[in-house]
C-alpha cells in the first residue's frame, strides 16, 4: 500500500505547485470544499479547470464569501472552528470560534454577524466576525443545518434535521418566533429574492416545502418523480433560486440529478443528470452558470442556466461538499 499515498501525493503536488501563483482575475472562480481530503479546490468555471488545490482545516463543509468577496469563510467541522482565508491566496487570515461541529452558516447583510449551525449540538451560534466573539447560542431542534436569511436580514430560517422543523429566528432579539413542521430531514432553507417565500428541502421526505414567511404556513409542496429512479433515492438537499424569479434548481442527492423547477408555478420542468450524490449548488455572479458538488463521484458539474444543460463535469478532491463562487 505504501506507494499509493506517494503516487497520489505526487499527483496532487503537481496540481497546485504547477498552477499559477496568481488566480485568474475577472473570471468566476468556484471554491469547493472537499470533505474527506481537507482541501478546497478552486475551479475556473468558464474554463472548467481546477486552478488551485489548497489544504484547509479538517472536514471542511459549509463555505461562503465575505461581503467584499475578498475573503472566504470555511466551516472546518472536525476542528470546531471557522477559518477565514484570503480568497486570492487561500492563506489563513484567522480563525473564528464557531461552537462544536459547524456545518453550514450564513453572513448577515451587516457583513459582520455570522450565524452558524452546530450540527452536533442543537444550536445556532451567532458570531461577531470583527470581534471574533460568540454573541449568542440559540437552542434549536436536533441537528440544525439549513440557514436562510430574508433579504433584509431580519429573519433567519434554520432547519433541524431530526426535529423536522424550520425555525424562524428574529435576528434582532435572537429568539425563535415560530416553528414550522416540514417533511423528514430538512437540509437547506432559502428565501426568494423578494422575500415572499421560503424554500425548504427535506432530504428523507423527498420534498421541497414552500413556506409563506408571514403566516409561517406551508403553501406548496414540490414532489419529484423520475422514471427508473426509486422514490427512496430522491433526496432533495441544495436549493438555488434565480434572481429573475424564473428557475429553481434543486439537487436530488443519490438520484444524481438536479431538478429544474419553475419558481412561479412550482412545476418541475426538467431533470439534469449530474454526478453521484449531488448536494450543494452555487451560481456564478451573473447567474449564467450553476455548479453542483457531487460527493460520491468526486466531481462537480457545470450547468448552463440559459440552456438548462450540463456542459461538463470536473474532477475535484474527495467528497466535494460545499461550493461558493465569486
Amino acid at each position: 500500500m505504501r506507494p499509493y499515498p506517494i503516487l497520489f501525493a505526487l499527483f496532487v503536488s503537481l496540481v497546485p505547485v504547477s498552477a499559477p501563483a496568481q488566480l485568474p482575475e475577472g473570471r468566476p472562480l468556484a471554491y469547493i470544499t472537499n470533505e474527506k481530503d481537507n482541501t478546497i479546490s478552486v475551479l475556473d468555471v468558464l474554463e472548467g479547470e481546477v486552478v488551485l488545490t489548497a489544504p484547509v482545516g479538517r472536514r471542511p463543509r459549509g463555505i461562503i464569501l465575505s461581503q467584499d468577496k475578498k475573503q472566504i469563510y470555511i466551516c472546518a467541522s472536525d476542528d470546531d472552528r471557522v477559518e477565514i482565508r484570503d480568497a486570492d491566496t487561500l492563506k489563513l487570515i484567522r480563525y473564528l470560534p464557531s461552537g462544536p461541529d459547524p456545518e453550514l452558516f450564513i453572513l448577515h447583510p451587516d457583513g459582520r454577524t455570522l450565524f452558524i449551525a452546530n450540527e452536533d449540538d442543537n444550536m445556532v451560534t451567532v458570531v461577531d466576525v470583527p470581534d471574533q466573539a460568540v454573541i449568542e447560542e440559540i437552542p434549536v431542534g436536533v441537528e440544525p443545518e439549513g440557514m436562510g436569511l430574508d433579504p433584509k436580514g431580519n429573519v433567519l430560517v434554520n432547519t433541524s434535521e431530526t426535529t423536522n422543523m424550520a425555525h424562524f429566528i428574529d435576528t434582532d432579539s435572537l429568539e425563535i418566533v415560530h416553528n414550522t413542521l416540514v417533511d423528514a430531514r430538512p437540509r437547506v432553507s432559502l428565501y426568494t429574492k423578494d422575500g415572499t417565500e421560503v424554500w425548504v428541502s427535506s432530504e428523507v421526505g423527498g420534498t421541497v416545502s414552500i413556506i409563506d414567511p408571514n403566516t409561517y404556513e406551508i403553501q406548496h409542496i414540490i414532489r419529484f418523480q423520475i422514471p427508473g429512479v426509486t422514490d427512496d433515492a430522491i433526496q432533495p438537499v441544495g436549493v438555488r433560486l434565480t434572481d429573475d424569479g424564473r428557475y429553481a434548481f434543486i439537487a436530488l442527492g443519490p438520484a444524481n440529478r438536479i431538478a429544474v423547477v419553475d419558481q412561479k408555478t412550482k412545476e418541475v420542468l426538467k431533470y439534469l443528470l449530474v454526478g453521484q450524490r449531488v448536494w450543494q449548488l452555487a451560481f456564478t455572479p451573473d447567474q449564467k452558470w450553476l455548479v453542483s458538488t457531487n460527493g460520491v463521484s468526486n466531481d462537480v458539474s457545470i450547468i448552463d442556466v440559459e440552456e438548462l444543460e450540463v456542459t461538463r463535469s470536473v474532477r475535484v478532491g474527495r467528497f466535494p461538499w460545499g461550493v461558493v463562487i465569486r
Binding site: P5, I6, F8, A9, L10, V12, S13, P16, V17, D37, N38, T39, P55
Partner: peptide, 9 residues
C-alpha cells in the same frame, strides 16, 4: 517540490 502536499495527503 512535494513538501506541503505530501503532508496534507
Amino acid at each position: 517540490f512535494m513538501g506541503v502536499a505530501l503532508f496534507v495527503v
